[in-house]
Amino acid sequence: MAVKIIVPELGESVLEATVSAWLKQEGDFVNMGDVLVELETDKVNVEVGAKSAGVLQKIQVPKGSDVKVGDVLGMIDEKQSASQPVETSKPVEAKQEVKETVVERESIPQVSPVASRFAKEMNVDINKVVGTGSDGRITKADVESYLQGASKQVEVKSEAKVSSFQKIIDTSSRSEERVRMSRRRQTIARRLLEAKQSTAMLTTFNEIDMSAMMDLRKRRNDEFQKKHGIKLGFM
């Protein structure tokens, strides 16, 4: 039986989202609750998990596409969720293969998309990070804790990045790369443009002759200070 992967409710007043990344590929086996795809909205990122175990049969919406609440993102085939039949002639080898497969799956750490991107930005080997989330899931806080313990290494890498960046600046050749704006960046740009178009961007100046007021203050300042203990101001 094929199970649809549907865009869930995204929050109050949020009706659309953009497919930020597919964390599973067609043909991959998924367990119930595994994160399949990450959606980006104007406010937050939403992770869509598998409603049942099976094989990701089809990805209907590719990365970078816009979707609405209720749209179908892909399909999961539940029929292929069962393990493959074991040959009776080699029961011992079959059991060993099943155990090795289970161990390999258990050894692969579950990483949240935010933690994965943050680890890549900081050049952190995700396999060295210990997860403290549910079922050993690695979160961004775990990566930050790992960085605090290896602060010296991070400083060395940062200095290397700065030196390499300076070398790039010293060279006369510069390359350009066009990157699609995220949905959140698009919202910020749209709000800034609306503010510029609907608000008067100007500065006004008013000139006043204060010479008479300054003369009056000069004459009354000493008397006012003796009487009240403070100097006479203009306000």
Rank of each mutant, 00 (worst) to 15 (best):
S172F: 11
S175W: 05
M75P: 07
V102E: 08
L56H: 04
N31P: 12
L193I: 05
Q25W: 00
V3L: 13
E87W: 14
V98E: 15
V55N: 00
R105A: 11
A189H: 08
E176W: 02
G11W: 02
K90C: 12
A2T: 09
E121R: 01
Q153W: 02
P85N: 13
V30S: 13
V143Q: 01
V3R: 10
D71G: 06
A212T: 08
V156K: 05
Q166C: 03
Q84C: 12
M210A: 10
G33R: 14
D77P: 15
S198N: 07
A160G: 01
G54I: 10
D125N: 11
N31F: 15
R105C: 03
Q80W: 00
S134T: 14
P85I: 12
F234Q: 13
Q110V: 07
R117D: 04
L216E: 01
A212M: 12
S173L: 04
V55L: 11
A50K: 06
D42W: 00
L39D: 01
S116N: 04
V7R: 01
R174L: 10
G11C: 09
N31E: 15
I108M: 02
S89V: 11
M213I: 11
M1S: 13
D28E: 08
L147T: 06
G136Y: 08
F29A: 08
G133W: 03
V44E: 01
N45K: 08
R180W: 06
S151G: 06
I76N: 06
D215Y: 01
K226E: 06
S13Y: 00
S172A: 08
V69G: 03
T18K: 10
M235F: 07
G70Q: 05
R191Q: 11
K152M: 04
G133F: 03
K79A: 15
E9N: 00
S173D: 02
T101D: 09
A195V: 12
E40T: 05
S211V: 06
T41E: 02
A141I: 07
T18S: 12
V179S: 05
K68Y: 04
K140H: 05
M214P: 02
D71I: 09
E38N: 11
P85E: 09
S182L: 05
V86G: 07
E121V: 01
L23Q: 07
V35S: 11
K218V: 14
E47M: 09
N123A: 14
K24S: 06
P113Q: 07
R219D: 05
K90Q: 15
R105H: 09
V7T: 00
M75K: 04
S20W: 14
G131R: 12
A50C: 12
A141H: 00
K79E: 13
T203Y: 03
M181K: 13
T187H: 09
Q186C: 12
K152W: 02
K128E: 10
S81A: 15
E106A: 15
G27I: 10
A50S: 14
S175T: 11
N127S: 15
V179F: 07
T199M: 10
S116E: 04
E194Y: 11
Y146C: 04
F234S: 14
